[in-house]
Design a protein around this nucleic acid. Structure first.
Lengths: 104, 104
DNA sequence: TAAGGGTGCTACTGTTTTTGTAGCACAAGC
DNA sequence: GCTTGTGCTACAAAAACAGTAGCACCCTTA
């Protein structure tokens, strides 16, 4: 586990702030989403994320790995146990989004 | 309710993609979080969000209002019924983040 | 043994987004 | 009139991101 470094914005250091800050960066939520049921290589992940630039993808992957949400092995990138738990919350969000989308 | 316009990135138009895209912009999650239990004026909200620039705050507020997540009246900005539901999911996220933060 | 294919990833330039500061227009209260 | 508070805009600088190319590495197959 890496150090818990300063949070962009808030200095309270509250976990939720660190999390909202990390997830609020572009592609972070999307990356976590795309890896929710399978591990993917860098290039596969890139394609899933609308051909996000490798610059951004690499930056986000580094950050998410530092937060113990993702890891990387010979089969590619995937969720850690923490990432899996977070992925479940995203699933709930997805379910909710359907109702939200169907609003009149 | 406003039109469901194109999503930055993905063109599938799936609700979760529209949502992840909106919430992935800077300060979006934080704004929803800060309004979870009370309505705030523009300036109050700005202070809560670490003095975010008014330019960004205004842009994010417009987007979140277009998504029916926030509204605005004489008492300031606050959650719509949809925003409240999303706020509950953020509360769950906050609870989870405490366990995540306490990882060894 | 070299040629190809796949991996993660970096370099570079240009565009987009965000920031930071100042201040405007409007309304209510005095 | 003047102040106070509201939401919000203008503008220039800084940071983040995009898009393209391509590198270094490790395999496999010829």
């Amino acid at each position: 586990m890496k150090a818990k470094t300063a949070v962009r914005g808030s200095r309270t250091g509250r976990p939720i702030m660190r999390l909202l800050d990390a997830l609020g960066k572009r592609w972070a939520l999307r990356i976590l989403w795309e890896l929710k049921d399978e591990r993917l290589t860098f290039r596969e992940l890139r394609e899933r994320c609308d051909a996000v630039s490798p610059t951004s993808l690499n930056a986000r992957l580094k950050e998410l790995r530092d937060l113990d949400l993702l890891d990387h092995d010979e089969s590619g990138f995937g969720h850690t146990k923490w990432g899996k738990q977070l992925g479940e919350q995203l699933m709930a969000l997805s379910e909710w989004s359907k109702k939200w989308d169907a609003r009149s």
